[in-house]
Design a protein around this nucleic acid. Structure first.
Length: 369
DNA sequence: TCTGGGGTCCTAGGACCC
DNA sequence: TCTGGGGTCCTAGGACCC
């Protein structure tokens, strides 16, 4: 997991491993299909990530195992996707149940942890670092104290948990005890930031090429922003050196830009960034990674206004037309400014092994004879 | 040669207010 | 010149998640 491909070339060759570049348009669409099936069966749920959903079964009177098996079968039939279902008293315990459901052949994808004896055994078999909310750093710290399993973690005193891992860690410990501390969140708060960043296939040493790249980030970020009906009050631009090259000086340069009045117009944000880029740039830089971060997002009506503008965002027919064209004919059919010069794409991340967008792009549709 | 991208939350400390 | 108590807001850094 997370290992660069070039480090495991022999393994790939030896076992005939199939390699795929990631394809988020495809994953996103398949995810929506799976979530839709789940939503049709339950009243309360929370989509937690592209491949996870929490379901509230409180007050349920039917047999949970039979119900879960049925749901699992239905998702497989309707989407082709195999899923695992873990059921318990809290989200943290349900995540553990889910993990075990996948591992155990007996469970075969569905596991209920309700009996305390079984919970104890499950926690004993779970490494502390596999608990939801315990990352690498905390896992190392806890192991140093002899807390190596989820069971030890559950049994540690509240004050110690709080001291080592702040209130979040305390919540985790209590959730392991079966006390609900992390509620089901069925209406997630709107985004506060939007980030678009890339590592480049080839390092960039030319300011104008970098400008091209940054412009394409702006284009993507603004389109995300408009899709969520938000405006940005500020943004951050950053450029980084290649951290793996010891023969080069390392740098991490960035700047913040105030956007007043708040906007989601690609042209305005592009122009603001372009100006800043000139002050940030120095000849001799070799840029491996760059990105932009849109900050302080809010609905247009909530945006701070300046003295001379009635509203931060009037109707913007041009941007609307742009989004419509993208929607109808594919991403970046029409772009603002200087995006995507014919010869300017060398820098782009390589993804030669991307699977087709079977379900979201007409030209990628599978043909059947 | 090649080394991912996109988010949130908490805390401590400093600046400021009355 | 010295002295106190009670707040808010912002930022950087560090942890976590997928």
């Amino acid at each position: 997991m997370g290992q660069p491909l070039f480090q495991i070339r022999d393994l790939v060759e030896q076992h005939g491993v199939i390699v795929k570049s990631s394809n988020y348009a495809l994953y996103g669409d398949i995810s929506r299909r799976v979530m839709a099936v789940v939503a049709s069966e339950v009243a309360e749920s929370e989509i937690y990530s592209i491949d996870e959903i929490f379901i509230d079964l409180a007050g349920m009177s039917f047999n949970p195992v039979a119900w879960a098996r049925n749901l699992k079968a239905r998702i497989l039939r309707e989407t082709g996707i195999p899923v695992g279902i873990g059921i318990s008293k809290t989200k943290t315990l349900a995540k553990i149940a889910n993990k075990l459901a996948k591992k155990s052949t007996k469970a075969n994808g569905v596991l209920v942890l309700d009996d305390q004896r079984w919970i104890d055994i499950a926690l004993e078999r779970t490494e502390v670092g596999d608990v939801w909310g315990v990352g690498r750093k905390y896992a190392r710290k806890l192991s140093g104290m002899g807390i190596v399993t989820a069971r030890y973690l559950r049994d540690m005193p509240d004050q110690v948990a709080r001291k080592i891992m702040t209130v979040d860690g305390l919540k985790t410990v209590r959730e392991l005890k079966g006390v609900i501390c992390i509620d089901l969140d069925d209406s997630p708060a709107p985004r506060k930031t939007i980030c678009v960043s890339r590592s480049f296939g080839t390092e960039i040493t030319d300011r104008e090429v970098l400008r091209d790249a940054v412009f394409s980030f702006v284009s993507r970020a603004c389109s995300k922003l408009r899709r969520q009906d938000l405006v940005a009050c500020g943004l951050e631009l950053f450029i980084l050196s290649n951290r793996f090259r010891t023969d080069q000086p390392q740098f991490s340069l960035g700047c913040e830009i105030d956007l007043t009045p708040a906007t989601n117009d690609t042209r305005l944000i592009g122009a603001a960034i372009s100006k800043k880029l000139d002050t940030l740039w120095r000849d001799g830089l070799s840029v491996k990674k760059a990105g932009i971060l849109l900050l302080d997002l809010c609905p247009p009506a909530d945006a701070p206004r300046d003295l001379f503008t009635a509203s931060c965002l009037c109707e913007n027919p041009l941007m609307e037309a742009l989004d419509q064209l993208d929607k109808r004919f594919g991403k970046e059919t029409v772009t603002v400014g200087r995006v995507a010069h014919a010869d300017g794409l060398d820098w782009f991340t390589t993804s030669s092994k991307r699977s087709p967008c079977y379900t979201t792009r007409w030209s990628d549709l599978k043909s059947v004879r």
